[in-house]
Amino acid sequence: MLKALVIDAGKCTGCKQCEMACSLENEGEFNVAKSRIRVFDFHTEARFVPYTCTQCAEAWCQQACPVNAITTDSMGVKIVHDNLCVGCKVCTIACPFGTVNYNASTGKVIKCDLCGGKPACSDACPTGAITFQDAEQGGFDKMKVWAAQSANAATHEGPNTPKASQASGSGH
């Protein structure tokens, strides 16, 4: 069963426990700048939105990599192989969600890999804003659901005000 991170931004208090947990798990240090999940802070609105890669079904980052350093594992997770990554950063401009980022201290890129199936961020989240759940939906739907929720949460718009243009361009 494929599982995915489900983010309910309305529950996020901005404590950044997820960022700390991610950085510790993946980089061995408490450095939120190297976290693969980031909590965006809407200063004027006191709103917080956790944000990370949703493991696109056919990932833009993966397609753009010149040396095939990003592959898909059996769980559908897009994984960067450090031994192959040359650090060209093309994936960082190719991912239209901005969720694969360059780590200058290693000269490679980092992105969420769901911690191999046990995401530290969801374990660390005290409010249930980040949960790890079964996902029948594809990456596109995941992103839509996530994005609609977080955008609504972020802008105080009522529920279900997605723009009419968001017709699925995928699926058949």
Partner: peptide, 15 residues
């Protein structure tokens, strides 16, 4: 985050 209520059209499914 505010504006991108959906994925880019054609989406990650069809990069």
């Amino acid at each position: 985050i505010s504006v991108a209520q959906g994925a880019p059209n054609a989406g990650p499914m069809a990069p």
